[in-house]
Design a protein around this nucleic acid. Structure first.
Length: 222
DNA sequence: GTTTGATCATTT
DNA sequence: AAATGATCAAAC
């Protein structure tokens, strides 16, 4: 699938896959369907990227660089509650002190997102998961303020060499959690006296309380 | 080895 | 049951 040329085209493509099961979508693109996610955790997201024409394997840029839009799948229950937190980006370690909210990679990712809810109730196989109603969302006002507050707190701690104190309990709507292939992976960071230390890589994740807020905003009866 | 795609599995 | 901490695969 070619990259979409406009927001409207992207939106139309997203609406066109609403209601399909992941098995049906996979069939359209001749993709194999894993029996479970245990060894294919990113499969659903990759499949939807393929179907919408996202640039696979892109790095710091949004999934649709021309449009400035990031694609995120969101597993939800039948009652519309998010079932998992949402990974946004890796945390800067050595560069933490130079980060500014307005130009941060975190803000770039969450500024404009195409959310694709996927019904993923317990017991549903990857094949059975069903695509919901995708919607374009832009970070604004109150939501930006709360995320900025959490992001600034966590980024400041990283800059001050406090990473060893940080766990997933920090942050009201945003949290910092391990993001690595396994528990032995290490990357460089600053220690509490400004020295270089080896530490586990971390990523920023949106709590379900935040994505739940977005869903309510989008689907609440007017 | 790191980033992007996330979910798994143990703890609370 | 929910949240945290750990983990898996592909692309680069």
């Amino acid at each position: 699938m070619q990259a979409p040329e406009s927001i409207d085209q992207l939106s139309a493509r997203a609406q066109a896959i609403a209601g399909l099961s992941l098995a049906e979508l996979a069939d359209q693109f001749d993709q194999p369907v894993p029996a479970d996610f245990s060894r294919h955790k990113g499969w659903g997201g990759m499949l939807i990227e393929l179907a919408l024409g996202a640039t696979a394997g892109s790095k710091p840029e949004p999934d649709f660089p021309e449009l400035g839009v990031e694609l995120k799948t969101l597993p939800i229950s039948s009652t519309g509650q998010p079932l998992e937190t949402t990974f946004v980006c890796v945390a800067p370690m050595l560069d933490a002190s130079r980060q500014q909210w307005h130009t941060s990679s975190f803000r770039k990712k969450v500024a404009h997102v195409l959310w694709v809810p996927v019904l993923a109730d317990k017991g549903m196989s990857p094949a059975q998961r069903q695509i919901g109603s995708p919607f374009l969302w832009q970070l604004s006002g109150e939501q930006e303020q709360v995320l900025k507050r959490d992001w600034q707190e966590l980024t400041d701690l990283l800059a001050l060499g406090q990473i060893s104190q940080i766990n997933a309990h920090f942050g009201e709507y945003l949290q910092l959690r391990p993001k690595a292939a396994n528990g032995s992976v290490r990357t460089q960071a600053f220690g509490e006296h400004g020295e270089l230390i080896q530490t586990q890589p971390k990523g920023f994740y949106l709590r379900t309380s935040f994505t739940s807020w977005i869903l309510r905003q989008q689907f609440a009866p007017k």
